[in-house]
């Protein structure tokens, strides 16, 4: 099986010291890989290192390969981010309707008619397990959705890009049990179709969803607050 993401000896450092790593892992086509560790171990930081969204002042070194492309540190670009899509921990809903949100990334990267775009959005919403709940109100403001629905909308927005891989950062940490189950169902449904790297602090969740697990043990003093400059 081909790897979608290959990471070797990846480190995240500030100017004078190594904050995270070194870590090495692969995420295979269609597999779900868990990234576990205590709070502050640098799980979120690693996800951001993969798509070049590290907070200011932090840099990555080590080897990173996405599909057949080797990404040198600092060379990640918009194309990379459209191939492996990060879904942040706190769902961000942009202004505008549910449909606007589902198409937020896609309409920037795909030249297509409104009809085709809408079809892709519907498919993505279905894949994220949100379609049934919003099918009749695609044009209503997305701000009105519940927390669990927002998280799945963010997932749908990422899936609409038909990415090779998804980076999920604690997707259920802010949700109640019922919403968590729904999001977990959506993630489980991705198995076999998309490469998923799932960050979680909950071992049982990793057990339920993942084929392989990467453990980060040493806590480090990285602040997870991401700032994009």
């Amino acid at each position: 099986m081909d790897n979608v993401i290959t990471v070797r000896e990846l480190r995240v450092r500030s100017r004078d010291k190594t904050l995270v790593g070194p870590v090495s892992f692969d995420v295979g086509q269609g597999s779900t890989t868990g990234l576990c560790g205590p709070s502050g171990a640098g799980k979120s930081t690693i996800l951001r290192a993969l798509v070049e969204l590290l907070p200011n002042g932090l840099t990555r070194d080590g080897e990173l390969q996405v599909l057949d492309r080797t990404i040198a540190p600092g060379k990640g670009d918009a194309d990379l981010r459209a191939k492996i899509v990060l879904v942040p921990q706190v769902p961000v809903v942009f202004g505008g309707s549910i449909l606007d949100n589902a198409l937020f990334g896609l309409r920037h990267v795909l030249r297509a008619s409104q009809g085709v775009l809408k079809e892709r959005a519907e498919k993505a919403l279905e894949e994220a397990g949100l379609w049934k709940e919003v099918a009749d109100r695609l044009d209503s403001p997305a701000q009105n959705l519940s927390a669990g629905q927002r998280q799945r909308l963010c997932l749908a927005r990422a899936l609409a890009l038909e990415p090779a891989g998804l980076l999920l950062d604690e997707p259920t940490s802010a949700l109640d049990e019922r919403s968590r189950d729904k999001v977990e169902q959506s993630i489980a449904a991705l198995h076999g179709r998309r490469a998923v790297l799932l960050v979680s602090h909950d071992p049982s969740q990793v057990e339920r969803l993942c084929d392989t697990t990467v453990n980060l043990d040493q806590p480090v003093a990285a602040s997870p607050a991401a700032a994009v400059g």
């Binding site: 798509v51 899509v85 961000v92 937020f104 990334g105 990422a158 607050a225």
Partner: peptide, 24 residues
């Protein structure tokens, strides 16, 4: 900043992030 991050992680260029996520 999480709004910017969310837009960047969907593969937008900086100009598109500013235009579609930050300016509105």
């Amino acid at each position: 900043d999480r709004v910017r991050e969310a837009a960047y992680s969907l593969g937008l260029t900086r100009r598109e992030v500013v235009r579609s996520a930050v300016l509105p």
